[in-house]
Write a protein that binds this DNA or RNA. Structure first.
Lengths: 203, 203
DNA sequence: TGTACATCAGTGAACGCGCGTTCACTGATGTAC
DNA sequence: TGTACATCAGTGAACGCGCGTTCACTGATGTAC
């Protein structure tokens, strides 16, 4: 039986990657509550105590998950910047990419809203805040470029706009969760984008 | 010592109210994670096992919290309907009321985003979904009235508008949490409202 | 108005469960000679 | 090329902790007579 055999021995670096990916995948499918050391170990194919060969503890694993998380979010910004020069087009593409990211990787909202993050430690909360702030600043930066180019109304506060931008998909994501995937976030995002564009576009 | 004396005996109805209020207050201050039977009992001034004289179990307590929650949210809608006839004015007032509700009662977002709700049972998820759906429908109804009166652009989908409306404060609430209350949600809501109004107002 | 009894809220000890973590061990891998 | 040894990933048993829940009891409250 597979289950009674000792797992293959792999170097720490490889295992760390596997464990982080496994953890992220578990958060996506079972939420932060389902993220136990045992569950991660099972998915990687080792015994729970073996996790401690590669991480100091569960907190350390969570930090690794955060790294993956940040990488995925920021990757979208970079990609969009490479795809087009037009600020409004960039925002629209970023919106649709984000929706896809949420749909393919449910972990994102689960992490953001989890109380493990909000209460467990000040450091972790600060870390998550940093990720979100960086993302907001990237959005605000695109807005500013749009204002400079004359595409976006000049008297709007870029930071406010960036928060409203996030608001275009965040409530929809919650609804998607509550309906068990029955709500069409993509469709909503497209409609919401038109409303948003109408609000910020210079005419 | 107070702590070594037996608590006063009160009838179940009174205790149920006290327990529900205590639970809501604990969620507000310590999140869903802090909501333990022991914590609720301590706040009410009885022993943990005494909770079971008035509720079947923790799940039952959570249901009572949901009732309070629904009452508070829907109360805002009713209040706003009584304050003014103008649809846009109603929406603006509803936004500001909601922001205040979140600030005074942090429990609201904590409940909405908690995994206890999203995973624990299908029934509870359906219940929360019902509350949010009802709220969204009330907002959509106000939008429809605005369209009929010629104040709101007629070609907009009321449901989409209601979700974007929620998006005006939801991301701000998250940021408020992450900064430990350092982010000015009220100020953001006022600015976001102007952007929103510009998007939906008929001209 | 006074007494006997039923009702039921409050108590504290105890249990079971899940979970993160520790630790002595095993045995495969790769390096030194 | 072959052998001895150090390194270190994987194992499984065990522990401690928090938490929801049960249960036999206590004793105050209010009703029946």
């Amino acid at each position: 039986m597979e289950s009674s055999m000792a797992a293959e021995k792999l170097d720490t670096e490889t295992r760390q990657e596997q464990i982080a990916e496994a953890a992220l995948s578990i958060v996506a499918s079972h939420g932060m509550k389902g993220l136990s050391v045992a569950a991660v170990a099972r998915r990687v194919g080792i015994v729970p105590s073996a996790i401690y060969r590669h991480f100091h503890g569960k907190d350390d694993v969570l930090d690794a998950v955060f790294d993956l998380f940040r990488t995925k979010i920021m990757g979208n910004v970079t990609a969009v910047r490479g795809e087009t020069q037009d600020p409004l087009e960039r925002l629209q593409r970023l919106l649709m990419r984000h929706v896809r990211l949420i749909r393919e990787n449910e972990a994102l909202p689960r992490i953001i809203f989890s109380e493990e993050v909000h209460y467990q430690s000040v450091a972790r909360r600060a870390r998550l805040h940093g990720i979100i702030r960086d993302f907001l600043q990237e959005v605000a930066q695109i807005v500013r470029e749009g204002q400079r180019a004359g595409n976006v109304k000049a008297n709007l506060d870029p930071k406010t706009v960036s928060l409203v931008f996030i608001g275009l998909f965040q409530p929809a994501a919650v609804l998607w969760h509550l309906t068990g995937g029955g709500f069409d976030v993509t469709r909503h995002a497209r409609k919401a984008w038109k409303i948003f564009r109408r609000a910020i576009e210079a005419r």
